[in-house]
Design a binder for these strands. Structure first.
Lengths: 211, 211
DNA sequence: AATACGGACGAACATCCGTTCGCGAGGCGA
DNA sequence: TCGCCTCGCGAACGGATGTTCGTCCGTATT
């Protein structure tokens, strides 16, 4: 029904790249040559289809009157997927079992400096106040970088296999166990078997949406 | 030398607004009518001047081939002026005396939700850790809304007239004095005469640039 | 006063560019 | 097989738009 043909997604991609590079939309003939299409009418035809599908808006009779309606990201910002909630109080289960999958429930747009120098950053909503002394409050959004290892004392999101839960804590290795330390003096640390722990991500930064 | 004539800044503003609204640049004739200019050549002339001054870039022979080179703000973000540093430890003086003036030393771009619902927001760099228990650390940037009053317990930036300093604290009114309370149990409150205190801004939110 | 120059006018010109139209190749159900 | 629809092709039409050119005016400069 609302599938895009190869040509249509090619056109979309071309428009995106064109705007990204030049800061103004392509003309129909720009698209024609850029996508190797033989006629302007074909471009027009597909543009109409794309407009019907709500992917863009066109101003008639106006040169380059194309406006993309999809996520218009601005230079200097990045969209980070919010994969769900994470416990900073009592550990709570996350919807996906093994590896939190690709079904993104939401997205937050932040300026680049919040995640600068890190790749594949994802975000989680914090529940609880167990990391309050590390300046992470209930309701904050934390940004994490995928990781499977961590140094002692680092703030990490860990998956506790037996509990089926994920939690945000500082991680310390002790003899034959791992200590997950809340940053809240009213809460005791959690001790777990190393085999039971899978590090999922390393803390980068957090934001607190204004209330 | 590089001053803009009235007409030129009018044109710049028009282009900005046009792009903001339509997502593609105006044609020369759009600018002509939009700015009440009698001839397209006048627009062309001034666009060349603006191009020389580095405020925009033009693609010759291309309709709407105008690209603004100034801060291209993206939808959903706002630029907040950073007016300087503020003490969250020992109060430190701010450069301007009475009212921190309009010379902005820097700017931060943040997504709208950080300051949603507030006007004329400005930002200050935090020095010190006196507000650490309110999750505001050294190096954070705090966003404030201009205000001259505050309820008890609110976090405010206050100007201490006799000291010539400004500081970020929680404010409490007591009999005939005002208590400025740090959020750091190792630090004592500051007591000041009400006449000596001028509230400058009310805390909205803060960010912690990733390190 | 003569000259130079920034800035503005208005009109003509040459493209640029969106739109339209006729035609044709497949795919699909009746 | 006969429509009917989707998709594509190529060309031509005409409006949209950037560019250029001759002219004019006001303000220094000489």
């Amino acid at each position: 029904m609302s599938e895009l043909s190869t040509k249509q997604s090619h056109i979309m991609e071309y428009i995106r790249d064109f705007i990204e590079e030049k800061d103004y939309p392509p003309s129909i003939r720009d698209i024609q040559f850029g996508c190797g299409i033989s006629s302007t009418s074909v471009v027009d035809y597909n543009l109409r289809r794309l407009e019907e599908k709500g992917l863009l808006r066109r101003d008639r009779e106006v040169s380059r009157g194309i406006e993309l309606l999809e996520g218009r990201r601005r230079r200097g910002t990045v969209d980070v997927p919010v994969l769900g909630a994470i416990a900073a109080g009592q550990p709570i289960p996350v919807p996906t079992s093994d590896r939190w999958a690709s079904d993104v429930e939401d997205t937050v747009t932040v300026t680049e400096e919040m995640v600068r120098g890190h790749d594949n950053v994802f975000a989680l909503r914090v529940k609880g106040t167990s990391m309050i002394e590390d300046l992470i409050d209930d309701g904050d959004i934390v940004f994490l970088e995928p990781a499977t290892t961590a140094d002692d004392g680092e703030k990490v999101a860990v998956w506790l296999e037996d509990r089926g839960e994920v939690t945000l804590k500082r991680l310390y290795r002790e003899q034959d166990r791992i200590r997950l330390q809340p940053a809240n003096s009213t809460m005791p640390p959690i001790y777990v078997d190393p085999e039971n722990v899978r590090i999922q991500g390393r803390f980068i930064s957090s934001i607190r949406p204004s209330g």
